[in-house]
Design a protein around this nucleic acid. Structure first.
Lengths: 211, 211, 211, 211
DNA sequence: GATGAATGAGATTTCATTCAT
DNA sequence: AATGAATGAAATCTCATTCAT
């Protein structure tokens, strides 16, 4: 369990929001993201979150003005951290678009499977959330996607990739990467590493189709 | 004492038998599946369901002994119908494994996008459901998967497909097909038909990889 | 319009013994008495009763106009049968008041323990029952008590018994006899017969006190 | 990950710990015991309890995680207090086992009649309560009984009492004492004191039988 | 005589939220 | 910063009762 070896970067790389800088907040956010991911947003009560942190329900309201706020912030934090890791990886990975894309997919699935199983649930945002919150979350997805899209476009431009519909390819890729942790959860822990690599290899086929 | 003929073992006379599959039940199941798919299982109250059917919520308990039961039954019905349609299609589609697989994917995505948008939600079964219900739902998935797996295996045997890990390919395929309705929901209705075809084409790449 | 159907008097449930009519009614009454005794009046739903009889809830309303009616009738039946057995016994048992009283107690406790465990629950009549029903049930108790009271009075008159307060003695006796099945339920079946005899012996002390 | 120090074994974070025995809890327990005793456990809704305390029913769940929990706790409190009073009395009452037993019975019946009419109802524990709760309640009974049993044994040892079956005697005694408040409830208030004394005198016969 | 269907009132339970301290 | 207490709305579920067939 609780394996993610927390990226202890100094302050969040993105001075994204006015997020108060306590480490307490980070603890709450982590616990919340974990729980929401595990059981789904609706199924997790604030008491669950509080209990895991060993504080009382009410005290969460000191940091967040509502459950939705907490939910949004948790997803945002997760997304930020996630994107940051992907960006860092890209910075360290030279080579052709193909090589870099494969590495990116591999890292993404790895994060999902090892550190955020069931994050998929998190992105199934409740319909009734206010538009502003929904937008914030979609923004995350976009930044995320851009990383992949850029590489795919480079590969197409260089003739390395052949793709009919870039949007479709990206959507399929994302879907598969998001679900991966769910089916991998049923694999013995030892087999997961290999599964992650297989997913990366398999998904590369999406950009190398020969018509 | 006197006359009662049967030994009623457990004091709590709960076990509600599978009721007849009358027309009414089907109506309830349909309404429920629709709503659960639209907004997620947790977000739909029995009152919502009852309202859509124009009955009182209590009366749902005549047919189902709990919300979970209703949920499971709704998924099951959906899955059965879905599989039946896929099987029917396969029966009518001759040709190579490749041609038939493409048709199968196309049909599957088509059903998802046009008839059961957001069915994905339905299959994200609440963790806390009793094991028996979870098993029932996994069974559905298995039957479903078998259709695809058989074709893929045929294609491999005939040399038409090249696949590294058949399990991984099937999982990725399924993930993409399940999510399709979610992103298609944002497309203008006119564009969806084309999107479905594109998904089918794109996913075929997963079995035609040339190393 | 009014007078015509006066002739039709569907068996008015008011009349004390419309009961011999139909062995079906007896079956219902037996099942109900048993269940009410086992788990308490409130905890037994009409569905429980119906289920044990393998009919539907609604059909009970053909025989009884309400749950309370059924409850009252069940108690009444039980009480009548019980009293009848006691009277029969007395008719067959000659001897001194002491011998006869002991036999009576023995029989009463025996019925309770062997045939109607937990009948005690039945006599804890819900407070909110209409006065008329409560009266009917008190009437039962009185008939019952009279059997004991008569014998005790005879014993006092003959000098065989010494009793300070006859009312108190009868109440204590009754209390102990009613509870007996509850504690005997925890005894191994083989030991119950002996326990019944011991209760009878013990309770005789209540009328044989020497000041 | 960060801070959660404990391995929270079962996902459902239900286990509500025994809360502090503040004054408020006592108020709730008293109100509940009173109501349950008056009308029977099943017939008392949490709203009744809340109403009497002038709070909302939801707030009871801050203290107790279910109605059963509240029920058990109420009985337990009642039983504890009751036993304590009996023990205190014994501490203050010198004399032969006979004198002390009579005082004990008198006190017990007095408490029942004057302070907890219908406590009997409380001890008719619903069958469907979880075994653990049933055990807790049986434990109470045992502590209670021990007080009486010890005295009876002393009396036998000293030759003051003659008893065939000590278990049976204790059970009968207990039954009579428990029911006393029910029949006394119908007496005019003025007569109750005398009735209590009579019960005590009458029950003493159970240990003084001369064969 | 009996059933299947439905209702409506009320019960238990959950939970986001507020607030005084 | 945090807690304990409480609230109120809504959700799940139960059940006696009715009624057309």
């Amino acid at each position: 369990m609780g394996t993610q070896q927390a990226v202890h970067d100094p302050p969040p790389p993105s001075a994204r929001v006015q997020r108060k800088r306590g480490k307490r907040i980070q603890e709450i956010l982590n616990a919340a993201a974990e729980l929401f991911g595990e059981r789904g947003y609706d199924a997790v009560s604030l008491e669950h979150v509080a209990e895991r942190l060993d504080v009382t329900k009410g005290s969460l309201y000191y940091y967040f003005s509502s459950k939705d706020e907490l939910g949004t912030a948790a997803i945002e934090t997760l997304g930020d951290e996630w994107t940051a890791r992907l960006e860092r990886l890209l910075g360290q990975t030279p080579g052709t678009p193909g090589a870099r894309l494969r590495a990116l997919i591999h890292e993404h699935v790895g994060i999902a499977v090892h550190d955020h199983p069931a994050a998929l649930r998190l992105f199934l945002v409740p319909r009734e959330w206010p538009a502003e919150q929904r937008e914030r979350i979609k923004g995350l997805r976009r930044r995320h996607d851009t990383l992949f899209r850029t590489l795919v476009e480079e590969g197409i431009a260089s003739g390395e990739f052949t793709v009919t519909s870039i949007d479709t390819v990206l959507q399929c890729m994302h879907a598969a990467m998001s679900q991966a942790p769910i089916w991998c959860a049923e694999l013995p822990a030892a087999a997961r590493k290999k599964a992650v690599a297989e997913v990366a290899d398999t998904l590369m086929a999406l950009v190398r189709s020969a018509p």
